[in-house]
Amino acid sequence: MRLLAGGASVRGPAHQQDGLPNQDALCVSGIRGGWCIAVADGLGSRPLSHIGSQKVVQLIRQLARQRQDRGHGEVVQVLRDAWLAHFGDRYRAYETTCLWAWVDSSGRGVAGQVGDGLLLVRSQGVFKVLTDQRQGFGNQTKTLGQADQRACCSTQLVLSLPGDGVLLLTDGISDDLVSGQLESFFDAIYQRQLRCSKRRMRQWLTTELHGWSTPCHGDDKTIAGIFRTD
């Protein structure tokens, strides 16, 4: 069985215009024959959210490296506790969303999400949009620091067939995707991943994100995926 992973993150035009850093964060890490991926979107209104998003993807990588057998629903609480313990009473300045997935060398693992963004999964050949449909408006989101069960979703992953995988997107991408085309979008990323190394995949994704075509788009954009290719 072969598992491949890739990802990219670009600073959005609005932050380039204002001289602000990329508030998104990305992690793509190989772990004992499996992979861990994470994306996070620091809240634009919080001054240090780029540090909060970087921290949460580090914490996700640390969790994935631990050999503890956690259920998918337990991850968010462990993650939230660790993130809050790091920032303490100052956490509001660092607020962030996050999406995560990791699988072991057999293709088994977990995926989850807190806040905005999109979590797409094909598991045992069945494509699913894990993210709940948004009830409000764009950029109004729950954060890891404020998360309750209603703001979270998670699932067990079983990548048992070629083409199975998981794709994580921050809302700078997901809010501008045509809603009826999500499975085709997933397939397009998978097809490219089939013929790319991790480095080439990052270059291609970076080019695609810099060339984003939605008029007036401004957000930072981050994407990460794991796919089973045979």
Partner: peptide
């Protein structure tokens, strides 16, 4: 050439 354009909304966010 940008290959993912066909999946992207072509109207600005209102």
């Amino acid at each position: 050439m940008v290959q993912l354009k066909k999946f992207q909304e072509q109207t600005a966010r209102p």
